[in-house]
């Protein structure tokens, strides 16, 4: 009778602690692994600065170039839909902000629920489009391995369960909420060991690319 509640309590308690611990330790290990490999300083005479172009690339790579957009609109649009929808529903949903508040000690204003709800639908649509693209686009199909599909699933589940829980489409509610939390815990646990790490490392990657180009006086 009380299984759903026990499950929710477990998901909110022990499981969350375990998942968060693995996530934090894992991410730090990954960043150490990368940064420990270093980058030798070039002895060539620089033609430009590294810092600013590096920073610029971190931001500018968020926008696609015109040619790529024309050639692969679906990849670009699905990517945008998903990422924007995800960021809104992850960071601007009030219950989530409360969670961050409890974890890091500070919060920020959220958005009204109907907007977050719409963002979630957009994110889910984006992810479904991305999956379809991955299964049909010959390049993506060839590039994708099991991990790519695993990462897709790990990202999709929290969005789906969150949506279902918010709309009470799973009964009882503690089960819905528990499943949602559990799906996030799965994501957290596997995050450091999969491509989900790109969430953090893309900033490094973009910076390196921009800095190395900036050094040679090229805009990247």
């Amino acid at each position: 009778m009380n299984d759903a509640m026990d499950f929710l309590l477990w998901a909110r308690g022990t499981a969350f602690d375990v998942a968060l611990t693995i996530f934090i330790i894992g991410v730090i290990i990954r960043l150490f692994e990368i940064l420990s490999l270093g980058r030798p300083r070039s002895l060539a005479e620089p033609k430009g600065n590294q810092l600013l172009p590096g920073m610029k690339s971190v931001i500018s790579r968020t926008l696609p170039d015109n040619g790529t957009f024309k050639r692969q609109p679906l990849t670009v649009i699905a990517g945008y839909l998903f990422h924007i929808g995800l960021l809104i529903s992850l960071l601007l949903f009030i219950p989530h902000i409360e969670l961050f508040n409890a974890t890091v000690g500070f919060g920020w204003p959220g958005l009204p629920n109907p907007i977050v709800d719409a963002a979630t639908v957009i994110a889910i649509t984006g992810l479904l489009a991305a999956l379809w693209n991955r299964l049909t686009n010959p390049v993506m199909k060839l590039l994708s391995d099991k991990e790519d599909y695993l990462v897709w699933l790990l990202t999709f589940l929290p969005l789906l369960t969150g949506y279902l829980a918010y709309h009470r489409m799973i009964e009882p509610y503690p089960l819905a909420l528990g499943l949602h939390i559990l799906s996030i815990e799965l994501l957290l646990i596997l995050f450091p060991f999969t491509k989900l790490m790109h969430t953090f490392t893309l900033f490094l990657a973009r910076w390196y690319n921009g800095a190395m180009s900036g050094f040679r006086g090229v805009q990247s």
């Binding site: 990954r30 692994e33 990368i34 940064l35 420990s36 490999l37 270093g38 980058r39 030798p40 696609p64 040619g67 790529t68 050639r71 692969q72 990849t75 670009v76 990517g79 991955r134 686009n137 010959p138 390049v139 993506m140 199909k141 060839l142 590039l143 994708s144 391995d145 790519d148 990462v151 491509k195 790490m197 790109h198 490392t201 893309l202 490094l204 990657a205 390196y208 690319n209 190395m212």
Partner: peptide
């Protein structure tokens, strides 16, 4: 080195690089 490690960690197999490559765009071979 660190850039290589950061690059491989970041790739999500989106395949957009193919669209920038002459050898893909002209042959269509993934």
């Amino acid at each position: 080195d660190a850039p290589v490690a950061a690059f491989f960690s970041s790739c999500v197999s989106c395949g957009l690089c193919a669209e920038a490559c002459l050898f893909y765009t002209e042959t269509g071979d993934p």
